[in-house]
Design a protein around this nucleic acid. Structure first.
Length: 528
RNA sequence: GGGUUCGUAGCUCAGCCAGGUAGAGUACCGGACUUUUAAUCCGGCUGUCCGGGGUCCGAAUCCCCGCGAACCCGCCA
């Protein structure tokens, strides 16, 4: 086999960008500006997987720029989407807003203009923190300003053909009867309940009746209103099966990634773009959904989601970027417990990038360095930064609960892990401390202390009132146990339970001196 | 019914998407710390890479066929 030619930085992102360019060239399209798109849901709390769509699209943009082309990421918020389900943990009063566009529902958290804006802001905030640059486009503005009016017109005049094709491609038959456009009912403000039944092409108006619909097993009552909507001005929304295509053409989108859950919609939209709108559909890449650790799909409408905001409490932005750029294939079960590994892995990449670690395989070295560069958004630091193994930090943070940063730093210097304090290390300690507090909670044990042990503990507090060497203290604990007729094993266990709320722990002598004799004495006296 | 992913050490998994000596953690065994539990450190063990075929000088990795598991779609967006 001949040598493989390395494309760009050698990652899947480069390969994808290369294929995209190849396709654009063969289609004979202008490559002056290659726009990539990412859709953002606005109906629920955005989980970390929602970021993936935009982050990966941004990666392709970077690769294209690296190849010498102009590129731009459009982040499209689907905030005209109707609320279908109240996310778990959200207030009940949202019930009356079901089926209304999320942009016209008050923000349950009270900090944004609407429900929809709150959700998309969370996502954009995540992107900002990762350093992803994008052009924000709201669905509401898109329709209100008539940006899709030509596409809507073309789609509606071809609705019969489209309806048949949808049935053929994905087996969904409703669009043979219904027009693929949902007006917002002028009377009750609901989407989906107003059924469009006739399009008047000359006036660009659509006739509808708010007769209600069913979503899943839920029946949504319409208000019965008979209305006419102007597709160039009044609010309404194309069905998902055709909306992407309209957007692609209107915004000249050349690339869009998608999750496998919307595979069918993309199939239909590709056809609509190619055959109805006469616009070659964008290059795609399909990715697997992120699953939570139980293996079920992370639902945007469920509470307790792995959000980027929560992730950043424990991990750096780069750990998220690494998660998303590492690979695109494969089902990923993702959870907060992936953070320590990703943190360490990023540091390993850094060492390879700066030549501190050598790999035997040249291709692999190139690809690994490339991955490092993408995680740094093709703007890699000039020097490597100080780092300490994340697990070690977590462990130290469970031991020191107060004054953590200086105490942990001191220990690290004692261990010879670092030479001096630094802002990077401080930051790492803070992250690991959050992790330790939230996930490494010692399990609460019921402490049973008999009278014999109490006497021994009292003796120990006396010993603790004067200074001693670590090994002397260790011996003292041992001797106190023996002289009171207690198995040293049991006595140590009791002490761990009192001090650490755990059955086991580090060597007690040095440990007690680390946390301070006073503190240990205090903890013991509480049980006397 | 359609589609996708996964199957690697006892266990949890990485490596696969651009083929080049089969890896980590944990568990286990031995040693050190002459004082327990534990931690830590050092050393060691562990494999039908699900099965079968193909391509290749070379396959855990790419292709095809099976088997098993999971997920998505078959409402809507």
């Amino acid at each position: 086999m001949e040598e493989q030619k390395i494309i760009g930085k050698g990652t899947w992102i480069d390969k994808l960008a290369d294929e995209l360019l190849e396709r654009e060239r063969s289609l004979g399209r202008s490559t002056d500006m290659i726009r990539v798109e990412s859709g953002l849901g606005a109906s629920g709390i955005p989980h970390i997987g929602s970021l993936g769509d935009a982050v990966r699209a941004y990666g392709v943009k970077l690769a294209l720029e690296n190849f010498g082309f102009k590129s731009e990421l459009v982040a499209y918020s689907d905030d005209l989407d109707g609320l279908r389900k109240i996310p778990e943990g959200f207030p009940e009063w949202l019930k009356e807003h079901i089926a209304k566009p999320v942009s016209f529902i008050p923000d349950p958290f009270g900090c944004h203009d609407s429900y929809g804006l709150h959700m998309s802001s969370l996502l954009l905030d995540g992107l900002d923190k990762l350093g992803i640059k994008y052009k924000f486009q709201r669905g509401v503005d898109t329709y209100r300003n008539g940006l899709l009016k030509d596409q809507i017109h073309t789609i509606l005049t071809n609705s019969k053909k489209i309806g048949e094709k949808i049935a053929e491609l994905v087996g969904q038959e409703k669009y043979q009867e219904t027009l693929p456009y949902f007006p917002v009912c002028a009377n009750c403000g609901k989407l989906y309940t107003a059924i469009a039944y006739e399009y008047l092409p000359d006036e660009k108006k659509i006739k509808y009746k708010c007769s209600g619909t069913t979503i899943g097993s839920k029946v949504l009552e319409g208000c019965g209103h008979d209305g006419i909507a102007d597709i160039t001005k009044d609010l309404g929304k194309l069905a998902w099966k055709v909306e992407f295509a309209a957007r692609w053409q209107a915004f000249d989108i050349r690339f869009e990634a998608y999750g496998k859950d919307i595979m069918d919609s993309v199939k239909v939209n590709d056809w609509v773009a190619d055959e109805i709108l006469n616009f070659h559909h964008p290059t795609h890449v399909k990715y697997e959904m992120f699953l939570d650790k139980g293996g079920k799909k992370i639902s945007k409408s469920l509470g307790n989601v792995v959000t980027s905001q929560a992730w950043l409490r424990y991990g750096t932005p780069k750990s998220i970027l690494l998660l998303l750029y590492k690979r695109i294939t494969g089902t990923r079960e993702v959870g907060f417990d992936d953070i320590p590994v990703l943190m360490d892995e990023y540091h390993e990449l850094e060492n390879i990038y700066f030549g501190k670690i050598k790999l035997d395989n040249e291709n692999k070295t190139t690809r690994t360095k490339g991955l490092y560069e993408y995680v740094n958004l093709l703007n890699s630091p000039k020097n490597s930064t100080a780092y300490v193994n994340y697990r070690l930090l977590v462990q130290l943070c469970t031991i020191f609960r107060e004054n953590r940063v200086p105490k942990v730093t001191k220990k690290l210097i004692e261990y010879g892990t670092i030479k001096e304090p630094s802002p990077e290390i401080d930051e790492l300690i803070t992250l690991a401390a959050n992790y330790a507090d939230d996930f490494d909670k010692p399990t609460k044990v019921e402490i049973q202390i008999d009278d014999m042990s109490k006497k021994a503990l009292a003796e120990l507090t006396n010993v603790l009132s004067v200074e001693s060497k670590p090994e002397d203290l260790q011996n003292a604990i041992y001797n106190i146990a023996k002289s009171n007729g207690i198995q040293p094993k049991d006595f140590f266990k009791t002490l761990y339970q009192i001090i650490l709320a755990s059955d086991r722990g580090p060597k007690l002598g040095p440990f007690i001196l680390d946390i301070g004799r006073e503190k240990a004495t205090l903890a013991i006296s509480e049980h006397l």
